[in-house]
Design a protein around this nucleic acid. Sequence first.
DNA 1: AAATATTTACTGAACGTTTAGTCAGCCATG
DNA 2: CATGGCTGACTAAACGTTCAGTAAATATTT
Lengths: 197, 197
Amino acid sequence: MTDDVSPTKRAIMEATYDALHEQGYGDLTIQAIADEFEKSKSLLYYHYEDKEALLADFLEYALEEFMAEIDLQDHEPLEQLEMLIDATVPETIDEERYRVQIALLELRGQVPHTDVYRERYTEIDRMLTDRVASIIERGVESGAIRDVDVELEAELLVSTILGVQTRRLTTYAEFPIERSRAALFEHVQQRLVAAES
Amino acid sequence: MTDDVSPTKRAIMEATYDALHEQGYGDLTIQAIADEFEKSKSLLYYHYEDKEALLADFLEYALEEFMAEIDLQDHEPLEQLEMLIDATVPETIDEERYRVQIALLELRGQVPHTDVYRERYTEIDRMLTDRVASIIERGVESGAIRDVDVELEAELLVSTILGVQTRRLTTYAEFPIERSRAALFEHVQQRLVAAES
DNA sequence: AAATATTTACTGAACGTTTAGTCAGCCATG
DNA sequence: CATGGCTGACTAAACGTTCAGTAAATATTT
């Protein structure tokens, strides 16, 4: 959907972001989306069969935005891991990233009751974990990373990142994000970096 | 509320659990709660001013159940940490624990739009982190744990636990819970346990 | 290239249903 | 016979969804 989609559908997705941001998932009505949308409410039904279809598409849209953010360049494995942390748990979080993370948090809560959502989150979780695992694997091969259990380390890192992200979004602003970031970076250093020989 | 509450209010809380479990937060209506409740819908309004008040009370109720689950006995610090992991991320998750965790996951998604929720989750987050920190501190004092940055280690462990919990609940059953548990236990060993001298 | 038909994007008003919330009154117990 | 716990019938507003219709763009015929 990233590029090839009609401007109208894109506008609907943006309106859904805004509505979700203002109302939360519990009060997310078609009317609320329409209110954030320049065109009419009925147009939503021209483009989508029903509310469920619209929201399913929105989740895909939001996940694409998330994946785009962590599209890492060619770098050393250790640098890539640090870039990943920096992208998922940035020191200061701008409006754009904030609304993506909030949206994904809200929709995740709906997973236990919507099978399509569960599939999407499973998919993204696996993609992310595999991505991390392959970075670590490259590091092991090049000698930059110790000969660790690759899958285990990937699981651990992904979980910790998600945990920090979630706690940051759902507690007050005083949440010690610098401490958590430091802990994440140090975690990578201590568990993964090969001892100098 | 754990003990001193009327049976009716308790029944309302249980009905809310069931409704939340069947409908999800998005479709959680007063009627849905009443349907899971032996008595009438109007009675809900006899006991609570409105839906919001009922849900606020429910969150408190659910958080108490959660806290009760991790009420650790007197044990060695390292044992306590392992008990904490075992309570929050059990190998197999029974119905009771599952519905508590699901409920807390769903309500957490609502935090960005409901200040009362944010306060509660901030509170529980802080309590949990402080509890972990004090366990680690005791370990350091007794020499069972290395002389680490206590707050940092507590942050890291709490985040990782939440991350594992969340991923487990929002991906398919194939989620490698054993690997995640192993990683958590190993994490405690490797980062916290004092080297034998 | 003018005239006509068809399709596409879109709207406003309306539909039946469901929602949160009210209220007059009932029925047991003290 | 008063009071606390409780109910069923009710309402106004909000809900998701439909639909008849419009105006502009595009395709087809003449």
